[in-house]
Amino acid sequence: MNKKVGVIGGGQLAWMMAQVAPQENIDLLVQTPSFSDSAVSLATKTILGSIDNAQVTAELAQYCDVITFENEFVDLVELQKLADKGVCFYPRLSSLSPLLDKYEQRCFLQSQGLPVPHFKAYESLTDFDDFSYPLVLKARRHGYDGQGTIIIKSPSELTAILPKFDGIPLLIEEFIPFDRELAVIGTRSASGEIKIYPVVQTYQQNQVCRWVIAPTILTPSQQETISSIVEKLLTSLDYVGVLGIELFLHENGTILVNETAPRTHNSGHYTLDACVTSQFAMQLQAVTGKKLGDVTLKSSGAVMVNLLGFENAHSDYQEKRDKIAKMGAFVHWYGKKESRIGRKLGHVTMLLDEDTPEKIEEKGRSIVQQIESLWYD
């Protein structure tokens, strides 16, 4: 009999979980506010309602063995009432608790002895005296795809920006002069088994991920540092499921943790086509108590490019997608009816067969240019 997994959220992350669920002998059910959301077409059952409505989650729980998450926009206090009645959530609510507020997340990371940028909760203008420009301002809750994250370059910019965040709790952090932005997907099962995917380079524009190249160039020491960070986080959180971790490779070669995402993550989308077990299959394996799969790359490397909205329109961009597919790419289209500037509409993955990380990066960047020239022409 198939296991039944509920997902709070019905967007593209749940949609990609739903794609691999049949291979894992899993029925996937979703809680989502609209029947037009991506995962609805593939879900076994859809419970219609806001993702932060615990009463709707209670209805979802009636049909599920376990409930997991597509995003962090949930009400932990109300969900805890369900957990107290026996509803199983993975990751555990206690694992999510220190991560949902970005200031509290930073405090937790620091308490674990992990290297993080200098940070402070914004309470008054004097808090900025501890920072030089440029600096980074982040909304403590509900930031997603770069929303709520702004790089402030001068006192005049700060004066202009702050009124727009009136009443919104903020995190101030130092701007890191990075050589590269990195990300890694770690997974832990309920039995404590841990698997770590290859570390990738990510490129952000306007705080939104444009592309990912796997694997990235690291020294053995840097690789070891990142692996120890992942293992420490997963273990200290008593985490079950997939955890996305974003990092900075400082110009001086040190590694800093930027932030975490307690779910499948955009930086791991390449795993659908490039790894033996995708992050989406891995999430389902972890939350249903299965042995975790193989995270090995099928080729020497891969590049993933996000297809972002470049206009406000209603279009499926089939002609553009066909041109990209002719390059030999795997094109994943999320089935969204409406395009908005910066909205993630799909992604593209191409496998690489170069023999060194340096050549993988060079080839990957070339492919990024080709795909983006077709998409954003």
Rank of each mutant, 00 (worst) to 15 (best):
C209Y: 03
V303M: 12
N258D: 07
Y239L: 03
G268D: 04
G289A: 09
G253T: 07
V242A: 02
V212Y: 07
M282N: 08
H269S: 13
E224L: 12
S278M: 11
S315H: 11
F330M: 01
Q223V: 05
F330L: 00
L218A: 13
V240T: 15
S227H: 09
T216A: 05
L308Y: 04
N312I: 07
W333V: 06
V257I: 09
M282T: 07
R263G: 00
L292S: 06
L256H: 14
L284N: 08
A302E: 03
E224H: 15
H265A: 04
H332I: 04
V303Q: 04
K323Q: 15
V212G: 02
G309Y: 09
D294Q: 05
S300V: 03
E231A: 10
A302R: 00
S299L: 02
S236A: 15
L284A: 04
G289C: 09
G253H: 03
A281V: 07
V295C: 15
F248A: 07
P220E: 05
K290L: 12
G301M: 12
K336L: 10
S221M: 12
V287Y: 07
F280S: 01
V295T: 15
A281T: 06
K290D: 05
Q318N: 04
K326E: 14
T225C: 12
L233W: 00
N258S: 12
A261M: 01
K320H: 13
I213S: 05
K336G: 08
L249Q: 15
G293N: 03
Q318Y: 11
K298M: 15
N252E: 11
Y317C: 13
G241N: 00
D273V: 02
D273A: 14
G268K: 02
N266L: 09
M304S: 13
L233I: 15
D322V: 13
H265I: 01
Q223P: 04
D322A: 12
A214V: 10
T288I: 13
V287A: 04
L308S: 06
A214Y: 06
E259C: 14
H332Y: 09
L297Q: 02
S299P: 04
I217T: 06
W211L: 01
T260W: 00
E319C: 11
L292I: 08
V230H: 00
P220W: 12
I229C: 09
K232Q: 14
K298E: 11
H250S: 10
M282K: 01
T277W: 03
N306G: 05
N206Q: 14
L308R: 04
Q207W: 03
Q222D: 13
S228R: 14
G309Q: 09
V295R: 00
H332V: 06
V242Y: 00
L272Q: 08
K232D: 04
E246Q: 14
L307G: 07
L284E: 05
K291C: 12
A329Y: 07
P220G: 09
A302F: 02
Y317E: 06
D273C: 02
T235Q: 14
